[in-house]
């Protein structure tokens, strides 16, 4: 055999970036941000290095659950257009490698977080990974159209973990930060599912538009958006919300409710006519919505540290 006969399947050779992509970096950025806000607004303080190390552990834990999700969902990812480029369907990383990386990083992140901060935070991180991988990925995702309603809890835990890193406990304020992301997830994903409907149908994932039709989905988006506004408003009664949060709450919830009403009043013919313009802009607005609320909490947290009494204060 000569060199000329060697065929190099170079498209299948994984680079470091392909392994990093297993950790879902975009989801990880949301995890890092919300965990950091939880850590900043919590009463008390930790050493900056411990804070940095803890957020890193939370990010790695989130990434590990992403790798385990990609391992289990490889069959679905191969079918859906949106996910065909992921490392496993692209043939760059094997399912076994993803499983090994996911399990190793899960154990590593939980143990290191426990050693660096406390075991309440580590326990919450372990539960988050378990919830995302076992409850959401393995069970709910393929069995019920309410998959993302309950599964959304997994993405909502990071601010609670960040809070627990500082205080070592779970309070009403940290639970309401969890509830904010939890209630935000359904309208966010259902808006996406409205214009990615065929993708989920092909993969036989029982998303609400596939199982109950788009009319029911539009109704659900409106109801959940109103419930989300109530949840976001409840944070105003806690000591972590201040004037910046109040402003963000008023602006973003007005826009979000208007967007949900617009989607609710449309039908499929109108949506297809303008290529789901309202649904797409609602999806983009949902990203800004969450970012604005947590950024506002962060500013209020920093301002109340600088000027005592800046916060609105609260009964909780």
């Amino acid at each position: 055999m000569t060199d000329a006969t060697i065929t190099l399947d170079d498209d299948k050779e994984a680079s470091f970036g392909d392994f990093f992509a297993l950790l879902k970096p975009r989801v990880m950025s949301l995890v890092v941000f919300t965990a950091m806000v939880g850590l900043i607004v919590a009463p008390g303080s930790v050493h900056p290095f411990v804070a940095f190390f803890s957020v890193l552990c939370i990010a790695i834990g989130g990434g590990a659950s992403g790798a385990l999700n990609m391992w289990y969902d490889a069959d679905i990812d191969r079918v859906m257009k949106r996910t065909q480029g992921r490392p496993i369907p692209a043939g760059k990383v094997t399912e076994g490698e993803a499983l090994a990386i996911g399990l190793t990083l899960s154990a590593f992140s939980v143990i290191m977080l426990g050693l660096a901060s406390n075991w309440v935070a580590a326990g919450l991180l372990a539960f988050t990974i378990f919830f995302y991988v076992v409850i959401y990925t393995m069970w709910l995702k393929r069995s019920t159209p309410q998959n993302i309603v309950i599964g959304g809890a997994a993405g909502a835990f990071p601010p609670m973990i960040g809070w627990a890193v500082v205080t070592g406990d779970i309070t009403i304020a940290s639970t309401l930060m969890f509830a904010l992301t939890f209630m935000w997830t359904p309208p966010h994903f259902w808006a996406l599912a409205l214009f990615m409907n065929s993708d989920y149908g092909k993969a036989k994932v029982p998303m609400l538009p596939v199982t109950h039709g788009t009319r029911v989905t539009r109704n659900h988006i409106l109801v959940y958006t109103l419930l989300l506004a109530v949840t976001a408003g409840a944070l105003l009664f806690t000591s972590i919300a201040g004037w910046v949060y109040l402003a963000a709450f008023l602006v973003m919830n007005t826009l979000f409710i208007l967007g949900a009403v617009k989607i609710w009043r449309r039908d499929d013919a109108a949506s297809k006519a303008d290529n789901f313009k309202a649904e797409r802009s609602f999806f983009k607005l949902s990203l800004a919505y969450l970012f604005a609320h947590f950024t506002a909490l962060m500013f209020d947290g920093m301002l109340s540290g600088l000027f005592d009494g800046m916060g609105i204060g609260g009964i909780f």
């Binding site: 050779e13 680079s15 470091f16 970036g17 890193l56």
Partner: peptide, 24 residues
């Protein structure tokens, strides 16, 4: 070959991760 570049990126990446772990 491109394949060597990708292997090198894996090795360098893993090396940096381990070095960062020691520092942390």
């Amino acid at each position: 070959h491109e394949i060597h570049k990708r292997r090198k990126s894996r090795n360098v990446g893993l090396g940096l991760v381990l070095a960062a772990f020691v520092v942390l």
